[in-house]
């Protein structure tokens, strides 16, 4: 695993030199899905890779131990055993990338994974007043510390949109830097909530600011905004990651989240990572897909690959 990003000094001139053209970015994003495609066993292999990058997520008010527990067992066995066997990939030990829950459910998740014999799967927790971030900084930071204490190894924070929208990028930087400190050893994923940033230039700037402040991952959305993980937004963020890498040598991970439901989408996202950043960025240490229902579709595609017919949803173990 690459060296963690320690962050760099806040550099306002870097932020000021950002240019993003929406129509041209959109055109490239639309091309990604039609310039590359994978078929047959290549497709199956890509879908398995996508599974390993999933942050299997439940973020609901009615989450309790029982559904978190079910989620964790599914996280360890994301693809039906018979399919894994038929594809001859048992020794790959395929699991999802992480389990993602609210802070109050972190302890449940940690215990459940242990019970499933899958403590190696990290628990990620959203934090800092997710999804809106409209709570005092003090409590937001405290939330991180508590989640980490409960065993979260990854923290998905939301950035301060009020500061971003009013151009206080130094303010965003300072807050994220404090959050990074609060994370300690836990990996920091910064959610930009791109759907609330107004334009793509802000998306690029927010990406840069978070990386400067020490983010390990940058993430598109909470899944609660009007517009979630579109390829266009993803493209802007990975281009920022590329630029940050070129300037500092640090590799930052990327996590699109929200609205990713089909196996085809997942493969296109992988292709985006491969094309724009290279193969290194297609593995779970630098790429995650935040999703809840995606896994079912992938399993159905794999079922079709193995048996040549489509499975009903109810035949797939739910998470």
């Amino acid at each position: 695993m690459a060296a963690r990003n320690p962050g760099v000094e806040f550099d306002p001139s870097w932020i000021q030199s950002v240019h993003v053209n929406l129509p041209a970015t959109k055109r490239r994003a639309e091309q990604l899905g039609i310039r590359r495609t994978v078929k047959k066993h290549y497709q199956a292999a890509w879908e398995l890779r996508a599974v390993t990058c999933i942050d299997l997520t439940t973020l609901a008010g009615d989450d309790t131990l029982s559904n978190v527990n079910r989620l964790c067992f599914k996280a360890k066995n994301p693809v039906m055993r018979e399919l894994i066997k038929a594809m001859d990939v048992e020794d790959l030990g395929i699991t999802v990338g992480a389990v993602c829950v609210y802070p109050n459910r972190v302890a449940d998740a940690v215990r459940s994974l242990k019970a499933a014999g899958a403590s190696h799967i990290p628990v990620a927790s959203v934090a800092t007043g997710f999804p809106c971030g409209q709570t005092p900084l003090k409590t937001r930071l405290e939330e991180i510390r508590l989640a980490v204490e409960d065993g979260a190894r990854e923290i998905d924070i939301v950035i301060n949109r009020q500061m971003a929208l009013t151009g206080d990028w130094k303010g965003v930087y300072d807050e994220v830097k404090m959050m990074k400190e609060a994370c300690g050893e836990a990996h920091l994923k910064t959610i930009l909530a791109t759907g609330e940033l107004g334009n793509l230039v802000n998306v690029y700037k927010a990406s840069l600011v978070c990386m400067m402040a020490g983010a390990d991952f940058i993430k598109t959305s909470t899944g609660k905004e009007g517009v979630n993980a579109t390829l266009m937004v993803g493209l802007v963020m990975v281009r920022a990651i590329r630029e940050y890498f070129e300037r500092t040598g640090y590799k930052i991970g990327f996590k699109p989240a929200g609205g990713i439901r089909s196996a085809k989408d997942a493969c296109t996202w992988l292709s985006l990572m491969k094309e724009e950043l290279g193969d290194e960025w297609t593995r779970p240490d630098l790429f995650r897909l935040g999703a809840s229902s995606l896994l079912i579709d992938i399993e159905r595609q794999l079922f079709h690959f193995v048996y040549g017919r489509y499975a009903a949803s109810h035949e797939i173990p739910m998470s």
Binding site: K39, Y42, A45, D88, V89, L92, T282
Partner: peptide
């Protein structure tokens, strides 16, 4: 070599005619 396992590791593109 292009077994599923190999492609899983390499994430190569294959023919898509």
């Amino acid at each position: 070599s292009n077994s599923i396992k190999d492609v899983f590791k390499s994430l190569q593109y294959g023919p898509a005619p």
